[in-house]
């Protein structure tokens, strides 16, 4: 049905089907609206520095220590991964983005270590459950890197080497 100007939906007055002229034109409300926008405009022109906007790439917000950013794997003192490939993280992961292949380690006190440890960052929902689940504090999400970009899907799948060396300045494993 084409637009109807007489249909029941045309009655926007609320009180009966007939609206008074000023109401139909919304004149009073228009001026009130103009006042509100003008107030905002002028306030912001004269107090530009007080605007809540952050100059994002230049100014970074402080997300605090609870920010869950790109994962990293912690190292032992000798530089080998702290991870023992127990797969708690991949078990608890709700998006099933962690895959680990375990292997035997020759060292008697280590016994088991990850052969591969890959995280599909595209699948990851950054819930942080893997960090909660890890019994060895081997995986953390405290790099502060949350602008994750790449030009192919493959590059979002990060491996053991990447995760072991994934740190930001100021955060040392």
């Amino acid at each position: 049905m084409p637009y109807s100007i007489h249909g029941p939906q045309a009655a926007t007055g609320g009180k009966g089907s007939r609206m008074r002229g000023a109401e139909l034109w919304y004149l009073k409300e228009i001026f009130r609206g103009m006042y509100v926008t003008a107030r905002h405009f002028l306030t912001n022109v004269f107090h530009m520095a007080d605007m809540p906007t952050l100059q994002y790439p230049d100014e970074k917000p402080n997300y605090g220590p609870w920010l869950r950013s790109r994962h990293r794997l912690m190292k032992r003192e000798d530089g080998t991964p702290r991870c023992v490939a127990c797969q708690m993280c991949s078990t608890v992961c709700p998006s099933d983005c962690i895959s680990i292949v375990a292997m035997e380690d020759d060292r008697p006190d280590v016994e088991k270590r990850p052969e591969t440890f890959t995280i599909d960052l595209l699948r990851c929902v950054y819930c942080g459950m893997c960090v909660e689940a890890c019994p060895c504090d081997a995986i953390r999400m405290d790099t502060g890197i949350f602008e994750i970009a790449a030009d192919s899907r493959e590059k979002f799948v990060v491996d053991l080497d990447f995760l072991l060396n994934n740190t930001t300045d100021g955060v040392k494993p």
Binding site: I5, I30, V36, T37, A38
Partner: peptide, 15 residues
């Protein structure tokens, strides 16, 4: 100023 103050009319209102 008006553009960023007022919402768009509905067609029947316009007519």
């Amino acid at each position: 100023w008006v553009r960023w103050t007022l919402p768009r009319f509905r067609y029947d209102q316009l007519m």
